[in-house]
Design a binder for these strands. Structure first.
Lengths: 220, 220
DNA sequence: AGGGTCAGTATTGTATACAAGACCCTGGCT
DNA sequence: AGCCAGGGTCTTGTATACAATACTGACCCT
């Protein structure tokens, strides 16, 4: 794991995700390199990769900026997620193994606990578990390519953006939809699974683009 | 153009596309650099980018290999294309401008001429025009993100792979489907457009995975 | 005074030199 | 004879030095 490029990639990505490098902020190679403790070479390679993944933007001879999403981008992203994750759920309905289903069940339960709990980092935990649930469904679909593509679409900063926009009722709906998706997978019903996942995500799309409510947590 | 990295990227990609670097063949940085006339640095960056696009595979400390597609990969790719390009056609039905439609009409006509002609490079031309038609529909959908994603999915080497697998009748069907898609777009009928595009691509999926016939040309 | 141009500076782009790790072949041992 | 060990070589990974390009500010010209 020692690889300096790997380290640079992880650190820079992390910096973007948790807001240390805000949207549209410029990234100077020298600074990054100094901060991480490697030379510019691995930093450049890491930036190249982040660029290919859509997290940063290149301008020749003018450096790299963190990508800033427009309202339209967000809509586009949720549309594509609905399409692709819906498809993933459809596949998963035919392929999910018993252990995979058990894992998803545990995640759904943990998420409910997290929502109903009162921990101060409640929102963080909910978002994290939610993310793992979606990853789990995707994994059950057993399509490497789909995983790769969704990696390009659903950028984690977006989750931050979605953060805190759920009203309590919408959050409950989200939990209920997770249970529904799970049930559809258990029954091996592809259409139901796809449809439930689609609704789940299109519901989230409409939450994005509103002012933050402060009342809930990100839940796709 | 001037940029050495850009040059390296283009040349290596070209080499993969036209078979100079066959599937699973190893790429040594030094060789590539010497062949292109630049140093290893831009070559590495180009390889990094190609890796992110899914054209080559990295193995730490062991270099880069051109990706080799399995049968299952091909099925997966066509499924995803059907999904994504179907969606693209749906969007395009509501957004295509008159000039865009005219452009697509010209392409459809040219493709028919190419199919019916007897030029020795007929297959090449058909594949090329076909590709531009699909790009055109996609462009009409006006979703940058969709374009980017499909760029990751539909790799051109795959077109080579599909090459020469069409029987004449299937090729005719393909032309007819292009006309149908175009008509659906003209009428602004999203469901029809999506469905026609889906059929078109799923038809191609079944052609892939057969032995080459030698009788036709690639036509998605 | 305003605008343009030219030099200085900062930052990215490229080359090269050096380090580290992985493959391969030979030699010795069991 | 087969197998393990060790060194040599080849290739990738990283650092640094150098080149080229774009920003900044000041000065000159109109």
């Amino acid at each position: 794991m020692g690889s300096a490029t790997e380290l640079a990639y992880t650190r820079i990505r992390q910096g973007i995700l948790d807001g240390a490098h805000g949207p549209a902020s410029r990234l100077r190679e020298e600074d990054l390199a100094a901060g991480i403790g490697v030379s510019r070479t691995p930093v450049r390679e890491a930036l190249r990769r982040l660029g290919a993944e859509g997290l940063v933007e290149f301008t020749p001879n003018r450096g790299v900026r963190v990508v800033a999403w427009s309202e339209r981008d967000l809509q586009e992203i949720f549309e594509l997620r609905a399409l692709l994750e819906g498809y993933g759920a459809r596949l998963a309905a035919g392929r999910a193994t018993a252990p995979a289903l058990r894992g998803l069940t545990v995640l759904a339960e943990r998420m409910e606990e997290a929502v109903r709990g009162h921990a101060p980092d409640r929102l963080e935990r909910v978002a994290e578990i939610n993310n793992r649930f979606h990853q789990g469904v995707l994994a059950a679909a057993a399509s490497d390519r789909l995983v790769a593509i969704l990696g390009h679409v659903v950028q984690v900063p977006l989750v931050r953006h979605t953060f805190r926009r759920y009203a309590p009722r919408e959050l409950e709906r989200s939990l209920s939809q997770h249970r529904e998706i799970l049930e559809a997978l258990r029954q091996g019903d592809p259409e139901w699974a796809a449809s439930a996942m689609r609704s789940h995500i299109l519901g989230a799309r409409n939450v994005v683009g509103r002012a933050p409510t402060g009342g809930g947590a990100a839940a796709t």
